[in-house]
Design a protein around this nucleic acid. Structure first.
Lengths: 138, 138
DNA sequence: CCTTTGCACTTGCAAATCGCAAGCAAATGT
DNA sequence: ACATTTGCTTGCGATTTGCAAGTGCAAAGG
């Protein structure tokens, strides 16, 4: 059990109690936009997160009910992490972070994805939420 | 100059390079939703942030162009912090954090504000961005 | 079988950051 | 003149991070 301390009852503050660090949302990003689902896949991201931090954050996310951990279908030595509905509900936050980053910093992003988010934000949110639920990719 | 290291060129990652901690977005929250603009006002928030952390985060936000610092109109010993356009553009992120927190955690929030955000998100975003630009509240 | 490989962590440790309390300096109030 | 307000800065112990190395376990190869 990873108990988090709640600093106040403000919804923004309680959200940040869980999501407010440099790594947690990157894990969810990898699950939503890159279809990743295993420990090894998360480690391969460009930001190179440390193994102990990843293990810690996955434990927090599981204990907070944002994702579930299960033995992989193919190998017993692998685990598959999947988003719960509470985790899927993070997608709108990720989309806003993409838009703000793309518009106010030097970043690299697939132009068609950016256009998709800018012109039809709600539709794009629903699309990626559907993908995350179904886990259609690999 | 508070230089931040950029971990990758992913827009979510670069956004988190600036916003990814437990305090930065609370400062912006106080400016947008509570109309706060001074060091002393930020310190009075329910989350009780430490004075050195506040000073550090304000310096980062200023150097990253999210807010400006100016001597207050009434007193020379006071400073007034105001959001730039880059800072005002954070409002959609805050709104999504409010909605996620309110729907998935035990929080306290003015029911009429929650209803406003749920039924007319875009209109609410524009309203609070307008307020932050004009700083109509003292 | 027995060894090797891949995967998912765990551990140790130095360095950075945080959180708390106290101190400080300039502008203001009385 | 003296005390107070305001906006920080400093010191320091505790926590968290980042890096490297090691561990345990299951499947694959020989």
């Amino acid at each position: 059990m990873k108990a988090l301390k709640q600093r106040s009852t403000c919804p923004i503050s309680t959200s940040l109690d869980v999501l407010g660090d440099k790594w947690t949302l990157l894990i969810i990003r990898d699950m939503v936009f890159a279809g990743k689902s295993t420990y090894g896949q998360f480690l391969q991201s460009a930001e190179k997160m440390a193994t102990n931090i990843l293990a810690d954050r996955l434990a927090v996310l599981e204990s907070q009910g944002l994702l579930t951990k299960a033995v992989a279908a193919d190998k017993k030595s692998k685990f598959t992490y999947r988003l719960t509905e509470k985790g899927v509900a993070i997608v709108p936050i990720l989309v806003e972070l993409v838009l703000w980053g793309a518009q106010h910093s030097a970043t690299t992003i697939d132009p068609s994805l950016l256009a998709e988010l800018q012109t039809g934000k709600d539709a794009a949110v629903e699309k990626y939420q559907r993908l995350a639920r179904a886990e259609l990719r690999s």
